[in-house]
């Protein structure tokens, strides 16, 4: 086919940009995680020393646990609430579009702006107790959870609504006729049929929560004393906040990448298996 010769026109621009923005930095990043460097060209091979320093770094371990706890809580709350809202909005009520619009709106606001909006609200509430959000890491944690819910519920709700609307109503009616309770219908009919939506929503909430940066930076910036810093923020601080720690920062980034990759694969494999063919 003649198309094959048109490689420079069709593929080269994308491939060149991809190479510069992703491929070279990715490989270079892997390499640099085994070296000590400040400007890339002065890299000295140090083996796995950076990984050992990263894993014995209290800030990193703390950030890892904070991120894991945050992700678990956010994934559960976001998906349960989004699914519940989607169920309410597919009951055939009039005017549901207005509600859908309202619930989705926060999603379009960027992380930095969202962070400052919620900083005002949360500090305003905590003022009644004479403290601020940076007083205790607990406040920062729940603040981030609330923010994440506020941002992601609308998005996941949209996906769940689409999933619920795809279910043929006769299936739910049939299970009602057969005498199934509402809960049984939900568990045995509705949920298996919206499994593809659940898969994608879980995937999106897990990766979004795990990789959170902007919201974290704006809401608490890790305060008090880095205790509310998540992984992405800790890696950023290691790179740009401590001279001589660039190699460790890169090692932390590789570990971060490995965790995200493993989670993505496990999650997709697990939920794909449970999907039902319609």
């Amino acid at each position: 086919m003649a198309l094959k010769k048109y490689f420079p026109v069709f593929v080269l621009p994308t491939l060149a940009a991809f190479t510069i923005a992703f491929a070279v930095p990715f490989i270079l990043g892997l390499f640099l995680s085994f070296t000590e460097f400040t400007t890339v060209i002065d890299a000295q091979w140090v083996g796995i020393a950076n990984y050992i320093r990263a894993l014995s770094n209290d800030d990193f371990i703390n950030a890892l646990w904070f991120t894991v706890r945050f992700t678990v809580v956010s994934v559960v709350t976001v998906n349960v609430i989004a699914f519940a809202l989607a169920t309410l909005l597919t009951k055939g009520l009039k005017g549901t579009n207005i509600f859908r619009t309202a619930f989705f709106m926060p999603n379009l606001i960027g992380g930095i702006v969202l962070g400052y909006i919620w900083q005002l609200i949360i500090n305003g509430v905590l003022r009644f107790f004479d403290v601020t959000i940076t007083y205790d890491p607990k406040y920062g944690f729940w603040g981030l959870v609330i923010l994440m819910n506020w941002q992601l519920i609308g998005y996941m709700m949209i996906i769940y609504i689409a999933g619920l609307q795809n279910i043929p109503t006769d299936l739910q009616d049939a299970s009602k006729v057969d005498g199934a309770s509402r809960l049984q219908t939900l568990r045995n009919v509705t949920i298996p049929l919206v499994m593809p939506s659940i898969t994608i929503c879980l995937f999106l909430t897990i990766t979004n929560s795990f990789k959170l940066f902007d919201q974290n930076l704006a809401l608490t910036a890790g305060a008090p004393s880095k205790q509310t810093a998540m992984l992405a923020l800790d890696i950023y601080n290691t790179f740009y906040g401590r001279i001589g720690w660039e190699g460790v920062g890169q090692a932390k980034a590789v570990i971060f990448f490995a965790i995200v990759a493993v989670i993505s694969f496990i999650q997709l494999a697990l939920t794909r298996r449970r999907e039902v063919e319609q």
């Binding site: 621009p13 994308t14 940009a17 991809f18 190479t19 510069i20 923005a21 992703f22 070279v24 930095p25 990715f26 270079l28 990043g29 640099l32 400007t39 890339v40 795990f210 990789k211 940066f213 992984l231 992405a232 890696i235 950023y236 790179f239 660039e246 920062g249 890169q250 980034a253 590789v254 971060f256 990448f257 995200v260």
Partner: peptide, 30 residues
């Protein structure tokens, strides 16, 4: 995740003179 390439991408793009508004378009394409 972005943090994996954050440092090396910034360096690479800087070396290639892509630290401009037009340059960032190339990075976003990538």
């Amino acid at each position: 995740p972005f943090q994996m390439v954050m440092f090396t991408m910034t360096k690479t793009a800087g070396e290639l003179g892509l630290d401009t508004p037009w340059g960032i378009v190339v990075i976003y394409l990538g």
